[in-house]
Amino acid sequence: MLNPENKTMRFTKQNFAMVVLGIVTYIADIGADLWIARNYFCKGQYLWCSLTLTIVLLSSLVVQFFSYTWFKEDNEVKLNWICLLHFFHGGMFTRYWIALKYGYQAAFKQISLEDRLIDDLSSIIHKTAIDAIADISMLRLFKTFLESTPQLILQIYILMTSNSSAISQYFSIVMSFSSVTCSTVDYQIALRKSLPDKNKFTRLSSKITYLLYKLLTLTSWILSITLVMVLSTKIAFILVALFWFGGICWTLKQHTEFCKSTAAEVVYRTVVSIILIFTFFNIKGEKTKIPLSVYYVIRILATSAILCTCMIQKLSFNGKIHLLSMTMVVAFTLVLGICSLLVYYKFFHPNNNCTQDVVDGAETEREKICRISKCTMQ
């Protein structure tokens, strides 16, 4: 039963509007990638076209894999039509349709009185809508760090190293940045909304500070990796590989148990290790003060080393970019991002036992409410 006094456990009209906005941005993001790939193809830049489409395809395959796996787990039977939809990469659209269907019923057709509990049917509808949004937020988070972030690095690199630019490139970069920042905040909101034992992420100041922390730290790191790519693609590959190796070691050490099957768990751990290349991700319900501190100390040291190396090797850039301005942007966004992180944890972080980005956590007295609650079980 849902308690009307606890409105954070109800699917509201605002939540429904966010679902609609999510569909629009999801389609726009895909459209931007296809647009820029088409332009590269028309210009005879087949390498850039292939890399752009490869990133899109690989991320979509992973998203379809998890989406179909979750459908099978939820229904405990093989659904042929669901399998067919996912084969044609329609998994996210299927989930958005479910969220719209139950979200509309919950937000516009279910009525709850001030001093009465709403009925069992309404409770189920609200819960189903919230669970659907939670699943979508997790899938979009996976898509963000498998597609949008690599796409950002690729497109910025192309802009830095080419003598011409196109509107499609800037549009793709803007959409990728929007996808990265919004999906991380959306995941945090969905996580807390779906777990009744957690304080909710409702204050606007909390959301803005959290968004700035993610946006600025990600911007600094993305530009740093791009600078290394301009200097040497081999060194950039080694740098990313080292961070991925560190991420996979940390993930294995945590002994995650997110998926029921071994194969799916391997894919999940690989995805999480890729996310850890770009941002901190708490994959267990443990205190994150020390891991978070270590993560961003390493990030600061790595960024500083990159900037120093670039200034020493500035002749290697051959005037391709205004190096001084770029290094100032990287340093400025990193400092502001770390400051936003400190402000968020000091003043705005909801008071609870686990910090943000919780995916896999220690078992508590929490009820199994949705998939995210399963993620926070050991």
Rank of each mutant, 00 (worst) to 15 (best):
L2I: 15
R10I: 12
Q14G: 08
F16V: 04
M18Q: 12
M18R: 10
V20P: 03
V24C: 11
G31Y: 03
D33P: 00
W35L: 03
R38A: 08
R38K: 14
T54R: 10
V62F: 14
K72G: 09
V77Q: 14
L79T: 10
M92G: 03
Y96R: 01
L100F: 11
Y102R: 09
I111W: 06
S112Y: 15
E114Y: 09
D115R: 10
D115S: 13
D120E: 15
S123C: 12
A129Q: 05
R140L: 06
R140G: 10
L141M: 08
T149G: 05
P150W: 01
L154P: 01
Y157C: 01
S162A: 12
Q169M: 11
S172M: 04
V174H: 00
M175Q: 05
S176P: 03
C182Y: 07
L191G: 02
R192Y: 06
S194A: 15
L195F: 04
P196F: 08
D197G: 07
D197E: 10
F201R: 12
S205I: 05
S205E: 13
K207A: 09
Y213P: 00
L215T: 11
T217Y: 06
L218K: 09
I222A: 05
I222R: 03
I225G: 14
T226E: 09
I235W: 09
I248L: 08
W250V: 02
W250C: 02
T251Y: 02
K253V: 00
K253C: 03
T256P: 00
F258T: 01
C259E: 15
K260Y: 12
S261D: 07
S261I: 02
E265R: 01
Y268M: 02
V271K: 01
V271N: 01
L276D: 05
T279R: 07
T279G: 02
F281G: 00
I283G: 06
I283A: 05
K284G: 06
K284Q: 10
K287R: 12
K287T: 10
T288K: 13
I290C: 00
I290E: 06
S293W: 09
I300V: 06
A305Y: 13
N318M: 02
L324N: 09
L324V: 07
A331N: 01
F332L: 02
C339V: 05
Y345E: 09
F347C: 06
H349F: 05
P350R: 04
N351Q: 15
N352E: 14
Q356W: 09
D360P: 00
E367N: 14
R371I: 11
R371D: 12
I372K: 07
